[in-house]
Nucleic acid binder design. Structure first.
Length: 531
DNA sequence: GCATTTAAACACG
DNA sequence: CGTGTTTAAATGC
């Protein structure tokens, strides 16, 4: 049985019981025939059937007691909470993301307790609980999945606020209402269609991105993927971008997310804007949407962007939780990954494959490969084109964006940008696709710096280290406003850059010229990952 | 009090 | 119907 049933199946569970990931050899997301032999039974089947199985509604107690007798298990299935189980499930996936259904599957397969309950009928309550947990905890983020009409991907948010529930920024009117609602009682609670909160649903009717019609582009493949957009969770929308996507990608490869969380922190510090990753992602998503214009490029871009998104997601997180202090910039591994992705340009397929493919943990692979090394010229071009794309996107965005456009304080960033072009621009312009392009080159530098092991470099690189922005850190929460400004800036910047054109190249070139790959690869994981 | 679990209502596609 | 979000109650620590 090697691993297959292996750990997961371990009948005893008891103390620790780590569901551990399922057989790694098997591709995860894969269709999975339906567990052949081991399916349900093999491993430990469910011995717990005993009475504990039925968790009565209120009576959890019973189950608990039963469970407890074993010693330490808090729940019928062991010590872990649903949230933890879910986290493990996600971690176990090569891509670190699973759909709801896959999470269910994982539970059924990996946790003995749920083994019998997998199928239909009995699956009642626990699935509900899982859904509930996914929604409730900020540590889980939802990523849009266009693929086969499947449901969204669920990933974990690196900084996931363990304790922090969903960010839920000040929801305007909720306070009272919540209480009231309680009073009301559930029965009557029906919510009238729009009425009170038009804004919520609409979130911008114009909505910047159309949801993306469908993508002809990609090949059949399986589910394709990418196109993830983070879900805005509570904050209705915030509109978009936050400008910095900072990246911390970090995947949890080596460590379990939990552990690494602390170390991450997003580098975006410079740009600040605390809140929720989700928003950024959306933005990115938008990019993707827009890109479709050109076939080849689009595909490439998409690939890269996809990657980016993933990375970005990790970058920051809601500060709501208390945890992350956004001020510390560590590093951004993301860049590295980006770089790799970019470099892959030449072979988009591989990229995608990486993303989608189950077997190889993407990150590692990428890291290793990282350097197909494009000739400088090649890079240049790409970056340029990308920029263009970005620019367009930006513009389009702009149009939808707020008219007011007033750059004011934020402007500071741009200025610095001129000074430190590469990094800066990225930070500022982030919301647009251009980011990707920018990043690519940048990544090289960063990577180096990382490699060197001196975060300092990064910091220096970071745009506003000087505290320009720090002062005004958006902690205010009104991201919207903040963002608006940013957008304008970005556009502005981008445009100007484009016009100048030179500036960009100029900056990048030098960077590009530096190959540094071998180093990058190393740098990637080990160096920055604090563990 | 907060965290979890469970249940349920409701919205959406 | 499955997916997601949210509210609520019970319970444990």
């Amino acid at each position: 049985m090697a691993e297959a049933g292996g750990a997961a199946a371990a009948p005893d569970i008891d103390p620790d019981f780590e569901p551990q990931s399922r057989p790694r050899s098997c591709t995860w997301p894969l269709p999975r025939p339906e567990l052949p032999a081991e399916t349900g039974g093999a491993a430990g089947a469910a011995e717990e059937s005993a009475g504990s199985a039925a968790p009565g509604p209120g009576r959890t107690e019973g189950a608990r007691a039963a469970a407890r007798k074993g010693g330490s298990r808090r729940n019928a299935w062991g010590n872990q909470s649903y949230a933890e189980l879910i986290s493990q499930a996600i971690e176990s996936a090569p891509e670190k993301r699973l759909t709801l259904a896959q999470i269910y599957e994982w539970m059924v397969r990996s946790v003995p307790y749920f083994k019998d309950k997998g199928d239909s009928n009995s699956s009642a309550g626990w699935k509900n609980s899982i859904r509930h947990n996914l929604s409730l905890h900020s540590k889980f983020i939802k990523v849009h999945n266009e693929a086969t009409g499947k449901s969204s991907w669920w990933m974990l948010n690196p900084e996931g606020g363990k304790s922090g529930k969903a960010p839920r920024r000040r929801a305007a009117s909720m306070d009272n209402s919540s209480k009231l609602s309680k009073v009301r009682g559930k029965a009557s609670r029906k919510k009238p269609p729009l009425q009170s909160a038009p804004e919520s649903t609409a979130d911008s009717p114009g909505s910047q991105f159309p949801k993306w019609p469908g993508s002809p582009s990609s090949r059949s493949n399986e589910d394709s993927d990418m196109w993830n957009t983070f879900r805005p969770r509570t904050s209705s929308n915030a509109s978009t971008i936050s400008a910095r996507l900072s990246p911390i990608l970090t995947e949890q490869d080596d460590l379990h997310d939990e552990e690494l969380l602390p170390s991450l922190v997003y580098s975006s510090a410079s740009s600040n804007v605390p809140p929720t990753v989700t928003e950024e992602l959306e933005l990115i998503d938008g990019l993707n949407l827009m890109s479709p214009s050109s076939s080849v490029l689009s595909s490439q871009q998409s690939a890269s962007s996809g990657q980016i998104q993933r990375d970005s997601s990790f970058s920051l997180r809601n500060a709501a939780g208390q945890t992350t202090t956004f001020g510390n910039s560590l590093f951004n591994p993301v860049d590295i990954s980006l770089q790799s992705s970019v470099s892959h340009f030449s072979s988009p397929q591989s990229l995608e494959a990486l993303l989608t493919s189950s077997s190889p943990p993407p990150r590692d692979v990428m890291m290793t490969q990282v350097d197909p090394v494009l000739p400088q010229t090649g890079n240049r071009m790409n970056s340029r084109t990308l920029l263009l794309l970005g620019g367009q996107a930006a513009q389009s965005k702009m149009s939808s964006g707020n008219p007011r456009g007033k750059p004011t304080e934020q402007q500071a960033e741009p200025v610095s940008a001129s000074v430190l072009p590469s990094t800066l621009s990225i930070v500022t312009s982030q919301n647009t696709a251009s980011i990707t392009s920018l990043k690519a080159p940048l990544s090289a530098t960063t990577a180096q710096s990382v490699q060197l092991g001196s975060p300092l470099l990064l910091s220096s690189a970071s745009p506003a280290p000087l505290g320009l922005n720090q002062d005004r850190l958006p902690i205010d929460l009104d991201i919207d406003m903040y963002m608006e400004d940013l957008e304008c800036d970005m556009d502005y910047i981008i445009n100007s850059e484009l016009m100048d054109g030179e500036g960009l190249d100029f900056n990048f070139e030098p960077i590009l010229s530096t190959p540094s790959y071998p180093s990058t690869s190393q740098a990637s994981n080990h160096t920055w990952v604090p563990s």
